[in-house]
Design a binder for these strands. Sequence first.
DNA 1: TTTATACATAGGAATGTATCTATATATTAA
DNA 2: TTAATATATAGATACATTCCTATGTATAAA
Lengths: 96, 96
Amino acid sequence: MAYDLNKFFKAISDPSRVKIMELLKDKELNVSEICQHFDMQQPSVSHHLSVLKNADIVAHTKRGKEVYYRLDSICITSCCNGFQEQFMDIEKLGKA
Amino acid sequence: MAYDLNKFFKAISDPSRVKIMELLKDKELNVSEICQHFDMQQPSVSHHLSVLKNADIVAHTKRGKEVYYRLDSICITSCCNGFQEQFMDIEKLGKA
DNA sequence: TTTATACATAGGAATGTATCTATATATTAA
DNA sequence: TTAATATATAGATACATTCCTATGTATAAA
């Protein structure tokens, strides 16, 4: 899949969204569980989740009433490495 | 040096700034030379350069009337890798 | 010293973004 | 079917960002 780098970096340019990503680091959480870690209202959290989803940083699964979100670590790796490679000399490429 | 990740990602979340970074990939350029690659006015380019400078992505040297900008590739590597590591499992760390 | 050139800064208009409240939709429980 | 719960969407407001024009500052040239 081809990730949109500009969308990715815009998405991670917000501290609340990075915090959500950290919460999802090694476990799935539903929206209410994520909300408990913030002072924001639930619609704001939902908005941030939709930005992350739109950048392919998180995926979600609906189970019953709840929607569970999880991190897509391939996206993170791919975007961070892909961006770096844009600025590497040709001879340095492929060393990662 | 400790880079500000949020500042870094905000800085690279703009296509014009990424284009400046690409222009500086393997050579120093002064502001006028950079301007030639854009439809923007010079003050807008100057503004983008100051955002990049503020995030430690570029450094500059004044020579005569001209100010030459260059890319700090350590910053790029350090921020991209540093961010990724935030979301890696402990056992995976250190493999890059 | 005056003029020209290179760049930066100030201030404003248009647009984008984050947050809120109110409400819609989907699912489960009564 | 009706009520309750979980989440998403809509619309408004405040603030941030991008771009512009106008102008300031530093350096070099005349």
